[in-house]
């Protein structure tokens, strides 16, 4: 496995790992790891870092919807041009091209139902190549980005054992 793959592996699990820690864990030079991380960031292989937040628990009310979008592909650029345009809206969290009965899966975040329906009816559905939208509101999030929200697996080990 290449060094960059190993670094990505570690950071994808916990972005707080420092170059020192990564270097120690991989038995590599710290400077080299730092350079490699900088390269990965510069080339946008590492696109960003963020915390996985349980907003509901934080007391922040918000609404998330997953919107199935059917679009007419365009000559030369297929779905990419419309997908990239949809990506630009700050309300949009994720955009994926899907196989199956619709084309783009768009995850939208807003402060309430009205907020999201306004975005869909006024901005998303009105885009020229968008043919239809089907909106599914998220009722409860159980797991996000690999993290289980209601985690019951605390460290239950004794403090000291043989």
């Amino acid at each position: 496995m290449s060094l960059s793959k190993k670094i990505l592996d570690l950071l994808a699990r916990d972005a707080r790992h420092t170059p020192y820690q990564i270097a120690a864990m991989l038995n590599e030079d710290e400077e080299r790891v730092a350079q490699e991380m900088a390269r990965l960031e510069k080339e946008r292989i590492i696109v960003g870092y963020y915390a996985v937040v349980n907003w509901e628990k934080a007391g922040e009310e918000g609404v998330t919807a997953m919107v199935d979008v059917k679009v007419a592909p365009e000559r030369e650029v297929g779905f990419d041009a419309i997908a990239n345009r949809i990506c630009r809206f700050p309300e949009v969290r994720d955009v994926c091209l899907m196989s199956g009965t619709y084309d783009l899966s768009v995850t939208v975040q807003g402060k309430d139902l009205k907020d999201i329906s306004a975005f869909i009816s006024q901005k998303l559905a009105t885009m020229p190549s968008v043919q239809s939208t089907t909106t599914h509101f998220v009722l409860k999030q159980y797991k996000l980005e690999g993290f289980i929200f209601d985690e019951k697996e605390a460290d239950r080990r004794l403090v000291v054992s043989p």
Binding site: R157, L158, V159, V160, S161
Partner: peptide, 19 residues
Amino acid sequence: FDVASQMEGVISLGVGEPD
């Protein structure tokens, strides 16, 4: 163990099992 388990907020490296 008897001493350590009585204390609050102990950071342990003392176990003999997987995490």
